[in-house]
Write a protein that binds this DNA or RNA. Structure first.
Lengths: 76, 76
DNA sequence: CTTGAATAATCCCGATCGGGAATATGTTTA
DNA sequence: TAAACATATTCCCGATCGGGATTATTCAAG
């Protein structure tokens, strides 16, 4: 019924980007961020700026919000 | 059944902090971040680092995740 | 109103983000 | 295979974050 699982931000962006047949460069331009940032974001760099992440998520109609902390016994 | 509404990150942190009768300094120490950061976060500074926000949210068992973009016709 | 605590605003400054470009790896596709 | 494209990695470097302290402002009691 539900996804039951919180996807990683990076994984989400990558999935949606590919679903839209976009390249990192295209998504970057669409979102107004650099290509390198898209790459780092998709690969889970932790210390990114909230506002820049939101620029990317906005392309998909999403944003960062508060969710239950994921369980710690996930592998990366 | 649900809250039906996505609270702002800053508002959430402030509410929970007060609910726990903590001062910004105490929360900061608990989360391992500075007092100034807690203050700025609560007041909605947009360009904060994801990892640092997560340190604060972790105190409350939460973290940043993907949610539907909030409607734009909210006042700040 | 006065006093004290909490929060906000400002300062200095080291650390690091992120853009852009170049290069190195992958990864398709012909 | 080879060529073309996508992604990852590295570089320089300006911009800004965030810590900590200080000061100003706001707020809560008494």
């Amino acid at each position: 019924m539900d996804k039951g699982f919180e996807e990683t931000i990076g994984a989400f962006v990558r999935d949606r980007r590919k679903a839209g047949r976009m390249t990192q460069r295209e998504l970057g331009e669409l979102a107004g961020v650099g290509t390198r940032f898209v790459s780092e974001l998709e690969r889970g760099k932790p210390s990114v700026r909230l506002s820049v992440v939101n620029k990317v998520l906005a392309v998909f109609g999403k944003s960062l919000g508060i969710v239950d902390a994921p369980r710690q016994d996930e592998q990366s």
